[in-house]
Amino acid sequence: ENVVSAPMPGKVLRVLVRVGDRVRVGQGLLVLEAMKMENEIPSPRDGVVKRILVKEGEIDDTGQPLIELG
């Protein structure tokens, strides 16, 4: 899985990584606010952040691509 998608609709509060960062499975990639709760979205695998497809403050839909890993 190279693309991390939104598991729920919500607002992107914080992006915790930058392009080029090495990430490990379970590491937080970004924080979504949904139903007044903050949810940290973890990396599904080890890899390198290739692209960040959303910006802080954006509203996303379920299934929307958020981050691409390489």
Rank of each mutant, 00 (worst) to 15 (best):
V48R: 07
E38T: 10
E1V: 14
I52H: 02
L30N: 00
L16K: 04
E38M: 10
L53I: 09
M35D: 14
K11Q: 06
V25Y: 11
D46I: 05
R22T: 11
G10A: 06
V3D: 04
E38Q: 11
R22M: 11
Q64P: 03
E58G: 06
A34F: 15
R22D: 08
I41S: 01
D46R: 06
R18M: 11
D60Q: 15
D46E: 09
L32D: 00
V19A: 07
I67C: 03
L16N: 04
G47Q: 01
P65D: 05
I41D: 01
M8N: 08
E58A: 09
S43E: 02
L16D: 02
V48D: 03
D60S: 15
K11T: 10
K11G: 02
R22A: 10
I52L: 05
V19R: 06
G10W: 04
E56P: 11
E40F: 12
G47E: 02
K36R: 12
M37L: 11
I41E: 01
G10H: 04
V17T: 02
E33V: 12
V15I: 15
E33F: 14
L30V: 13
E58V: 11
G26H: 05
P65A: 11
L66K: 01
V31C: 05
V3N: 06
G20H: 06
L32V: 10
R45H: 09
G10Q: 03
A34T: 13
E56N: 08
R24H: 12
S43I: 02
G63E: 07
V15T: 03
G70D: 14
G26T: 03
L13W: 03
E33T: 07
V17E: 01
E33P: 00
V12N: 00
V31Y: 04
K36G: 15
G47A: 09
V4W: 03
V48E: 07
R45K: 11
L66N: 02
K50G: 05
V19M: 05
G63A: 07
I52F: 02
D60E: 15
M37Y: 08
E58C: 10
R18P: 01
V19K: 07
L16P: 03
M35W: 12
N2F: 15
L16A: 01
L69H: 01
N39M: 15
G57P: 04
I52A: 02
V54A: 10
L69C: 05
D60L: 15
V4R: 03
E58H: 10
I41K: 01
K36W: 11
T62D: 07
L69N: 02
V17N: 00
K36E: 14
Q27H: 05
I52E: 03
D60C: 15
G63N: 09
V15F: 12
G70A: 14
D60R: 15
I52C: 04
L69K: 01
S5Q: 11
Q27C: 05
P65Q: 07
G28K: 09
M8G: 10
G26V: 03
V17K: 00
V31N: 01
R51K: 12
G57E: 06
R24N: 08
I59W: 15
L13N: 04
G20K: 04
G26W: 05
L13V: 12
G10V: 06
R51E: 07
V25D: 05
Q27L: 04
L66V: 05
V17G: 00
K55I: 11
V12R: 00
V15H: 02
V15W: 11
P44F: 05
R18Y: 06
L32C: 04
D60A: 15
Q27R: 03
G70W: 15
V31E: 00
R24S: 11
M8D: 02
G28A: 14
R14P: 02
L69Y: 05
I59R: 08
R22L: 12
E58S: 10
K11A: 05
E58Q: 12
K55V: 13
L66A: 01
R18F: 08
N2Y: 15
M37I: 13
D21K: 03
L16F: 05
K50S: 09
D46P: 07
I59Y: 14
L66W: 06
V54T: 10
E38C: 12
V23E: 02
L30P: 00
V12H: 00
V48A: 03
I59P: 06
R14G: 03
G28F: 10
E38P: 09
V4S: 03
A6D: 03
A34K: 06
R51M: 10
T62M: 13
E68P: 03
V3C: 13
E33Q: 11
L69P: 00
V49Y: 00
N2G: 10
G63C: 11
I52S: 01
E68C: 11
S5I: 14
P65R: 06
D46H: 08
P65F: 07
G47W: 04
I52K: 02
E1R: 13
D21G: 04
G47K: 00
D61W: 14
E33K: 08
N2H: 13
V31S: 02
N39G: 05
I67K: 02
Q64K: 11
E38H: 10
V23D: 02
I67P: 01
L13T: 08
M37P: 02
M37N: 09
A6T: 06
P44E: 04
K36D: 15
G70L: 13
E38Y: 09
M37W: 07
K11D: 02
M8S: 10
I67S: 01
L32I: 14
V48Y: 14
M8T: 08
V15R: 00
G20V: 02
L13E: 03
G20W: 05
P65W: 09
I52W: 02
K11Y: 09
V4I: 12
V31P: 00
V17I: 06
E38W: 10
N39R: 14
S5H: 14
N2I: 14
D21Y: 06
V3M: 13
E1I: 14
L13K: 10
I59M: 12
I59Q: 10
K55C: 12
I67L: 10
P44V: 04
G10N: 03
I67G: 01
A34V: 14
A6Q: 04
P9R: 14
